[in-house]
């Protein structure tokens, strides 16, 4: 069983601040983390390896600093790690990103067959959930999105059974490997790597591939050139024109506050009063 897990290094958005005057993003000192959703994908691949044996390869497309994210994955137990990194990738949208990643995965296949590809549900920065479906289509793999449970894998028969979160319920799907799974959050819990893996992760020789090494001959397929979408502007949400109308009573007595509020709201929104009465009585 060989699983390839796609991970992305993202800024810890909980710590991103927007500059109050210039409205630009202040990234200084914002730590880079593994996209949290991708850890569910990695853990699921590691569990299958525990169960069935095999290999787990992690791959990311990103700047040289993304190496740290890959080493972290090795410390959790991944066997091998590949960073595809080239200035030519800068500005890639999801179409170009899935192109680059699928080319690199094809390159991996030259050495070892790939049975499963795992991605996270989405990232916390781009947040599009489009890269997983994109890779599957480009490799002509069966696509299983929002998988909540890998029920069973049968490597001999090349069969896999999963539960998928659908609209209004759960689908139990059976398909053949190779296939691509986007893993739903909260489906498992990332293990702590053991000491051996920690040492191995530090020493491991990462593969770093530039565009050609990743098997991409045409530079027009990646980066800004390979991206149909173009960001035309970035701006801050505009504040509502009016601040809230503040309800005040002379001693701040809650009862009077409540009665004053109700009188005001219902005078200005008589329909709302009817609506509430209709529902509540």
């Amino acid at each position: 069983m060989h699983s390839v897990v796609c991970i992305k290094q993202v800024p810890d958005s909980a710590q991103i601040r927007v500059h109050p005057v210039t409205n630009t993003i202040m990234r200084q000192g914002v730590p880079a983390i593994i996209n949290p959703y991708d850890l569910f994908a990695l853990e699921e691949a590691l569990r299958l390896k525990d169960q069935l044996g095999g290999t787990v390869t992690v791959i990311t497309m990103g700047p040289p600093m993304a190496e740290a994210a890959l080493r972290k994955c090795l410390s959790f137990g991944a066997d091998d790690a590949i960073l595809i990194s080239d200035r030519a990738f800068a500005g890639s949208d999801t179409l170009a990103t899935s192109y680059a990643l699928s080319a690199a995965i094809r390159k991996i296949m030259e050495d070892m067959q790939v049975d499963l590809i795992f991605t996270g549900k989405q990232t916390i920065d781009g947040d599009t959930a489009q890269v997983g479906p994109g890779i599957a289509k480009r490799l002509d793999y069966q696509l299983l999105t929002y998988v909540s449970k890998v029920v069973e894998v049968n490597p001999q028969k090349k069969e896999i059974l999963v539960e998928r979160r659908a609209e209004g319920g759960v689908q139990l799907l059976k398909t053949s490997t190779p296939c691509l799974i986007t893993m739903l959050e909260g489906t498992n819990e990332m293990r702590f790597g053991d000491l051996d893996d920690l040492f191995r992760a530090a020493r491991h020789e990462l593969k770093v591939w530039n565009r050609e090494q990743a098997g991409i001959d045409e530079a027009e397929m990646v980066g800004l050139k390979g991206s149909p979408t173009v960001v035309s502007k970035v701006f801050a949400p505009k504040p509502r024109s009016k601040r809230a109308e503040m309800i005040e009573v002379h001693d701040g007595n809650p009862k009077d506050l409540a009665i004053t509020l109700l009188a005001k709201v219902f005078t200005q929104h008589p329909k709302l009063e009817q609506e509430i009465a209709k529902r509540a009585l």
Partner: peptide
Amino acid sequence: SLLCTIMT
């Protein structure tokens, strides 16, 4: 925190 406008 920010909005962006994207065109194809």
